[in-house]
Amino acid sequence: MNNDWKDRIVRMSGAAVQKCMRCGKCSATCPNYGEMEYHPHQFVYMVERGDTERLMASPSIFECLTCFACVERCPRGVEPAKVIEAVRLEVIRQKGANHLKPDDLPAAADEDLPGQALVTALRKFAK
């Protein structure tokens, strides 16, 4: 149980993990559920429990599409996507922890890829 970490994530995200009533609507609504090891309701619960290491080490945090469907439909106003974003920032702000590096880009991009995709991905996945 890491309370400092939990408080920092809550403060950073502005999301209210303690309001979660464990209904699972976020996970029911998540379009990328199938690609995740931990799912939106678990993100929220793990933050609430202060379960730092497992969550930060999980590739699931890079599978969130930030589509905000969970935020829109959560009956308790928990805003899971904002929680996940805060955890992701917590990871990539560490030294050398960028999930996407500029060197990776040429391989991933093709000539039609809009610049929007590049800047968005870098903003999400790199500090």
């Binding site: 464990r22 699972g24 609507k25 996970s27 029911a28 609504t29 998540c30 559920y33 199938g34 799912h39 309701h41 678990q42």
Partner: peptide, 11 residues
Amino acid sequence: VQASDLIMNEQ
């Protein structure tokens, strides 16, 4: 109907 099964941890 897209739903979550929290016991099975499945969508």
